[in-house]
Write a protein that binds this DNA or RNA. Structure first.
Length: 642
DNA sequence: CTAGGGTTAG
């Protein structure tokens, strides 16, 4: 082999961007025997295992074809696998390294400890720690820091502290790791004490505190620390935006983004995806569209994560059209997240068949589904009543695709059977599950009992729930509705009493609507005089007009929490009705009224929305906790199946 | 030729 060939090969590898490109280079290198050169082999493996997308299988092939891999190759494969969906394989490679009598070094431990962290396996972590000590590496700065993070990830703060104390001269990175560990263990005070004691702080240390505070819901502390921060960097801004968004404070998230622009900082992909996620959750369609323009102007819209956030924003703001436009025309590159998001978007809007078609298209495209893809696909089946299809996917995901089924997948199946009225099949399914059913599983069945009015099964489920999670207000509301519909007033009263005795508060329902780029939120109020005069007036007018068209209030579902004479007033005050009245009062005649609700839409509100869409000739889109309802000309996209 | 801490969509 010549020097020339070697140089040429190395320069080719430097510019290698895709797996197929890598395969070409590999093929050429094998012809000249260059692939046996440790430098070339190492670089090939490094690219496949860590840099290129979807190339891990090829990395394993490269590795297993190498007769006696050097430590670098072991480390590289351990590293690649540690961040994969199967960190377990990383641990197996590490074991093989030991079996092959290749001594692990500090790099090996840094990578394999990451695998233990990703598996959240404390026992594996302990075991690896003894190996670290055996190799005399416990005071190694990098290994020690990874140990701290691993213990934090596995939920053992005490061990993280010990590992930190074993580091003779911890640097700022090690300090940041132990502060993060405190936050992971909900020890905010401990984190604050360490932050005070830190010998040096760079901006990352402050960012650790910001992320810790927002993660703990201490937004006031986060805000004051942010204001006091000497050097805010891009991560600080992103942390505030995503932190406030994930605590439901969408307005603040948007304000931070606007302030970032005012300060003359350039938004990056993280701040943009964060603020888009805030719009998605709040249903702020107008603000989202403006951000889309921002993204294009800043040249960020071609980044996959930004495209995914845009498509998700449009889908959650009720525009399946814009979502698919982003997906079909504006995303040259797509990841598993893009496909899954689009499948979920179609499913949320009731396009079950289309969601399944897209799943097959994804496969033809060569993208392998993962566990979350199957959650979306099963959700699509259950919300469109595709029982056979759902059953088939559930079987195939494990048998054909080799993806482990989690409790969420079982939950989808319970929903699939239950929604369709196959209550006993759903019950039988739960009793035969190989995983212990949790409260969510039983709650799903309770929801199905409510749809289909099965009191006896509901009572049985109630017992299970009272063991697993006795304080969920939604369960009590569901149960009392089931009794009310069946006319069992004594039982309604008894559920109500037990709620009072156990001091269970109903989750307050809220609905929001964006008008002129401002999100207005309405809460179901106890006192009609709390409602703005403008909204009250409009609502009274609307209801009068609907009654002339033959509307009769469906008061069944509220009988549990109000006195007889108040029941009509009570459903009149539902937050989604206040929001739609506000929309009718404030928005021009043509525009679509988009509402987001935190709970499920109530049957009476559903009827009212249908009627408004017909009488006022307005399209109304309501996103509730589980799906979209698109009301047009008197009917709903959910076909009354929700 | 490889590492550790802080923000990122389903």
């Amino acid at each position: 082999m010549s020097i020339n060939h070697h140089l040429q090969c190395v320069s080719l590898l430097r510019d290698c961007k895709t797996l197929s490109h890598l395969k070409q280079i590999h093929a050429r290198a094998s012809k000249t025997g260059l692939d046996a050169d440790p430098l070339v082999a190492g670089k090939l493996l490094l690219l496949a295992a860590t840099t290129l997308a979807d190339a891990l299988d090829y990395a394993r092939l490269l590795f297993f074809r190498t007769p006696s891999p050097d430590p670098f190759m072991y480390n590289t494969l351990i590293r690649g696998l540690s961040e994969s969906d199967h960190p377990h394989h990383s641990l197996l490679t590490y074991s093989q390294m030991r079996r092959d009598s290749v001594p692990p070094d500090s790099f090996s431990f840094a990578f394999v400890l990451k695998a233990a962290a990703n598996r959240k396996s404390l026992s594996v972590g302990w075991q690896l720690h003894t190996h670290v000590i055996h190799h005399g590496l416990e005071s190694h700065l990098f290994v020690g820091t990874t140990l701290v993070s691993m213990y934090a990830e596995c939920g053992c703060l005490a061990s993280a502290r010990k590992a930190f104390d074993d580091i003779p001269q911890p640097n700022v990175v090690a300090w940041n790791a132990i502060v993060t560990a405190c936050f992971r263990a909900d020890d905010v005070k401990g984190a604050e004490r360490l932050f005070e004691r830190m010998p040096w702080k760079n901006s990352a240390s402050w960012n650790v505190m910001l992320a810790g505070y927002t993660g703990a819901g201490e937004l006031g502390s986060a805000r004051s620390l942010f204001l006091a921060m000497p050097n805010k960097d891009a991560v600080s801004w992103s942390t505030m935006i995503t932190g406030f968004a994930s605590n439901g404070l969408f307005d603040d998230a948007l304000s931070f983004f606007r302030e970032l622009l005012r300060e003359g900082c350039r938004p990056n992909e993280t701040s943009l995806t964060g603020v888009l996620s805030a719009c998605a959750q709040a249903g702020a369609f107008e603000s989202g569209k403006i951000l889309h323009a921002h993204a294009e102007k800043a040249g960020l819209s071609s980044i996959i994560s930004v495209g995914n956030a845009l498509l998700d924003m449009y889908a959650r703001c009720g525009s399946i059209l814009m979502a698919s436009r982003v997906f079909d025309w504006e995303m040259e590159k797509k990841s598993i997240v893009s496909w899954t998001s689009m499948i979920a978007a179609l499913a949320m809007h009731g396009y079950g068949e289309e969601a399944i078609q897209l799943f097959h298209k994804m496969e033809e495209h060569g993208t392998k589904p993962d566990g979350i893809t199957f959650i979306s696909v099963l959700y699509a089946c259950s919300h469109s009543g595709l029982i056979e299809q759902g059953h088939k996917f559930f079987q195939e995901m494990e048998n054909t695709y080799g993806i482990e089924r989690s409790i969420e997948h079982y939950g989808c199946m319970v929903d699939l059977y239950g929604r369709a009225g196959l209550l006993h099949k759903a019950y039988e399914f739960i009793t035969n599950m190989p995983i212990k059913p949790n409260a969510i599983i039983w709650r799903t069945l309770l929801g199905a009992c409510s749809i289909h009015g099965n009191v006896r099964l509901a009572e049985h489920v109630r017992e299970k729930l009272s063991e697993l999670d006795p304080s969920d207000s939604g369960d009590y509301v569901l149960l009392s509705n089931i009794y009310a519909v069946a006319g069992k007033w004594k039982d309604v009263a008894s559920v109500r009493r037990s709620m009072i005795v156990q001091r269970i508060q109903k989750t307050p329902g809220w609905s929001s609507i964006e008008v002129d780029k401002v999100v207005h939120t309405f809460v179901a109020s106890d006192d009609i005089s709390d409602v703005k005069e403008e909204v009250h007036k409009k609502l009274t007018e609307v209801m009068a007009r609907l009654k002339m068209e033959g509307y009769i209030p469906e008061i069944m579902s509220v009988l549990h929490d109000v006195e007889e004479e108040e029941k009509e007033d009570a459903i009149l005050r539902h937050s989604e009705k206040l929001a739609v009245a506000f929309g009718l009062a404030r928005m021009p005649g043509e525009s679509v009224i988009r509402i987001v609700k935190n709970l499920r839409i109530c049957p009476d509100c559903h009827t009212v929305m249908k009627l408004i869409s017909k009488v006022y000739k307005r399209e109304i889109v309501v996103r509730d906790r589980s799906r979209f309802h698109s009301f047009r000309e008197g009917s709903c996209s959910c076909r009354d199946y929700w």
